[in-house]
Design a protein around this nucleic acid. Structure first.
Lengths: 349, 349
DNA sequence: TTGAAAGCGTTACCAA
DNA sequence: TTGGTAACGCTTTCAA
């Protein structure tokens, strides 16, 4: 049979209540008693029953991290950063640690909702949504409603890389300034003399896609440069390859291609190489995420920290300079963090 | 207040037991009753209380996936594959889905144990351990003991990419044949005429590191070729760069470098490029994981499937041809899947 | 500082 | 096919 708290109590010759108090460390307990209890725990190899604990306490130490695509290194890095940040702040019940669990939505709206329900069911301590969100009004409404219920039930909600929750969901938000980032990226290419720039954009209905595209167009408009061809596709390597073929078909004179993210950028590079084109000798490529895989720079994003026990959210390098913002407020990560990935260089003529 | 099963029962004018039965779908319930219950659930926006359910049923629908480094695309792909395989077989209680959660151990033994305890505490339905394991006897014993307790408590244990559990832990295992893979990789390079091959190995005390190195040496010995320099380091891009510097310092005449995995291989490539060396013109590089990031081939590993509700484990392309093996038995993935990443080409002289 | 006991929301067994 | 009702193992007042 599995060992229960009562067994420990019996062995330590105290009441179950005392054992619970020792384990949670929230209550004063005599040192000698504590020691006796801990020894009993050890001797019996006792492991707290999570469900029972969560049921009684009406909360669990689960923290859900929803990502769009766990196979994408970008999300891997983000998830990893979040997970270690969560681990650091561990101070929960029954032995301490929070269980940070990453859930892969695959970008599918229904899976996002499913996972949110599952986490709601588990009475998760917190939920972090990472990456751009779908802009479909119906899905947005459903998500918002779900988040509202979660928050209502005591689950902390953190939005990371997507716009702050519509309505009045009490969520902390970590926002990447995609628009400014894209603008700077394009300005950079323009400054290098590029005038024919192709754009391998992300999926049509994503916030990240739209914001980045808007920033791109702003820069072009400001410089009076006509917009080049744009192709949409998922955030995958393969769509970078497909997009490149399409873009070059539409304008063989392209001197630069902007990719919707680094994974796509790698696909673009592969396609260019297949065609015998030199990078950046022949065509420049610019990405977004600044992955170590794509760049040699230390990835700024790996330093994103999400101290869930704070009332707000702090971001990356700013952590030491910025005070936590009150819950619900938004802190914007400087565009530099997003622009970092740029590798634009003029085409050889 | 939050809606409970009793509320639903009251609204549907049935007993709590009936509601439970409808929700779990394990018991026969009259169609009309079921409908009434489901409507009540909908109207009240009822969400099952996971902890309560898990407490009563003595099991949860949580499936833990432990990976060594979630920021490594290799594990991202593996986790993604596992997660979708788990989703497909979903048939659990209280609405169906299992909650696949990936836990990042960072390769740290104590975090591995911590997560296992956390999952044990949650009464997880299954636990999947992915990636090579530490060979330290103490840690191995601790892990084995922990896995034994988990299995004992009804948690299914799956080992993926690490040797089958020592002792008699009833675990399903999916084993990669690292030794044969490495042997083939080296044979390939030898066949291309390479005689001075450097080896950027993984961390010293990992099973994957040792097995791959052994295979490598087997091939060299069989061909009567002396072993080149070997450098150990973590499975990270940076260690590929460091290793390259060291390897070239030890033998500037190297014509090929084998990396411990694709992430490391990317670091090796970066370092070679920094030195103005052409790949594979000047130096060949060979990796292991066959990531799409590193190669253009479709990654065999993304097709790894882990049907947790089967008694055994099936692997990748074999799925249609192979019957599930009985629990506890081992099925070996053909070395081809591992060798795929090879990109060896003779050095220009 | 410690103990007693009342829940927490489901499940599952036993009747009906 | 449905209802009644003990568990399930822990947390948390309320007393002592």
């Amino acid at each position: 049979m599995t060992v229960t708290l009562a067994d420990v109590a019996a062995r330590a010759r105290v009441s179950p209540a005392t054992v619970s108090r020792v384990l949670n460390g929230n209550y004063p307990v005599a040192a000698s008693t504590r020691e006796r209890v801990l020894r009993a725990v050890d001797e019996l190899d006792y492991v707290l029953n999570g469900p029972a604990s969560s049921l009684a306490a009406a909360t669990s130490d689960l923290v859900g991290v929803l990502v769009n695509d766990i196979a994408d290194p970008f999300f891997g890095i983000m998830a990893s950063a979040a997970q270690s940040a969560i681990g650091e702040t561990a101070t929960g019940r029954g032995g301490g640690e929070k269980l940070a669990v990453v859930c892969n939505t695959g970008g599918a709206p229904e899976r996002e909702l499913t996972y949110l329900t599952l986490l709601q069911r588990q009475r998760a301590a917190a939920v972090i949504l990472m990456g751009g969100s779908l802009e479909d009004p119906a899905h947005l409404a459903a998500t918002t409603a779900k988040l509202a219920r979660l928050a209502e039930a005591g689950t902390r909600v953190v939005l990371c890389g997507r716009p702050p929750a519509p309505g009045d969901v009490p969520a902390a938000a970590l926002v990447f300034d995609n628009r400014t980032g894209a603008r700077r990226l394009t300005e950079h290419l323009l400054a290098l003399g590029h005038r024919r720039i192709g754009y391998a954009a992300g999926p049509v209905d994503r916030t990240t896609t739209r914001h980045r595209l808007e920033g791109h167009r702003e820069a072009l408009a400001a410089a009076g440069v006509p917009e080049g061809p744009t192709v949409h596709g998922p955030y995958e390597r393969a769509s970078g390859q497909a997009a490149t073929a399409e873009l070059l078909a539409r304008d063989p004179e392209l001197t630069a291609i902007i990719a919707s993210n680094d994974t796509v950028a790698l696909g673009v590079c592969a396609a260019l190489r297949e065609r015998g084109l030199d990078i950046p000798g022949d065509v420049s490529v610019a990405g977004f995420d600044d992955l170590p895989l794509a760049q040699d720079t230390v990835p700024a994003l790996t330093t994103v920290r999400l101290p869930l026990h704070e009332t707000g959210v702090r971001a990356g390098r700013l952590a030491t300079e910025t005070e936590p913002t009150p819950s619900g407020e938004v802190e914007t990560v400087p565009a530099e963090l997003v622009v970092r990935g740029s590798t634009g260089v003029a085409r050889r003529r």
